[in-house]
């Protein structure tokens, strides 16, 4: 399975990632390789699936969550209790 460079540019744009031409070439090749690896799954014989689960639900009751400090702890940038990020459009 092959992927062309336009497809890579499109996916990069959806993921809001800026790629230069050299990176586009590199990822085009890598995408092809990765999709190739997944093709191996086609050769795996089918197995019995686990029995179907259904209706796994919880009662509408409040659980304790994270404090603001905990919630923000992994963020590279914060301001006044908010996560801070680049502009979006």
């Amino acid at each position: 399975m092959t992927v062309d460079d336009d497809e890579v540019r499109h996916v990069a744009q959806l993921a809001r990632i800026d790629l230069d031409e050299e990176e586009v070439d590199r990822f085009t090749e890598q995408f092809g390789d990765i999709l190739g690896y997944f093709q191996a799954l086609d050769d795996v014989p089918a197995v019995e699936p686990d029995p179907d689960l259904a209706n796994v639900m919880r009662a509408d009751e409040v659980d304790e969550g994270l404090t603001q400090r905990e919630a923000l702890r992994n963020a590279p940038e914060t301001e006044d209790g908010y996560f801070k990020g680049p502009t979006v459009s």
């Binding site: 908010y82 996560f83 801070k84 990020g85 680049p86 502009t87 459009s89």
Partner: peptide
């Protein structure tokens, strides 16, 4: 359109 950055509240 003119914002400098974005603040996010979840």
């Amino acid at each position: 359109d003119t914002a400098e950055y974005t603040l996010i509240d979840y």
